[in-house]
Amino acid sequence: MSQALLDKESVLAQMANHPAVAALSAGDRPLLAEAKWQFEELTVYVAREDVVTACLAVQAAGYNFLEDLTAVDWLPRTPRFQVSVHILSHSLKERIRIAVLLEEESPAMDSVTAVWPSANYFEREVFDLMGIRFNGHPNLRRIMLPEEWEGHPLRKDYPVEGYR
């Protein structure tokens, strides 16, 4: 399928059998807040409080490997931050993206280290460079920059040449 599906309704209509879509829309409370299929990639948006539940659901559906976790600063759009989790399935040979949108005011979400311990460094990197907190992270401290560094360089309101 090459044409883009840009909203939840069209994704649910045409990709209901996709393992990740099925796993997230099953159950009493659907976890799928929004979805899109673009550039041959499936993005599922979940609410902030659902992220660990959603990760467990796709893990049970065969998406067993956390490949990458990072964040995007959409300033001036609201909600400002997007955390993107890329999950690979070794058996299905396929990748999905779970995206969580976070407000500008003290952005925080639950840590997925309980599901994939490998999220540890990735979440520390996002905390360090983007200033997003991960609740329940075992060691949330700066990883790249010194502890006493001011600000979070990957934010759009941080100047490229740094504060002078």
Binding site: E67, D68, T70, W74, S84, R97, L154
Partner: peptide, 29 residues
């Protein structure tokens, strides 16, 4: 505009480039 994650196998393991575009000539991320 859009976001793409391109994974590939380099010498050390799986590498990935996640490029987010907002439609301009410079990447958003």
């Amino acid at each position: 505009a859009g976001e793409v994650y391109q994974g590939m196998e380099c010498g050390h393991g799986q590498m990935g480039y996640y490029v987010v575009s907002d439609g301009t000539a410079k990447p958003l991320r």
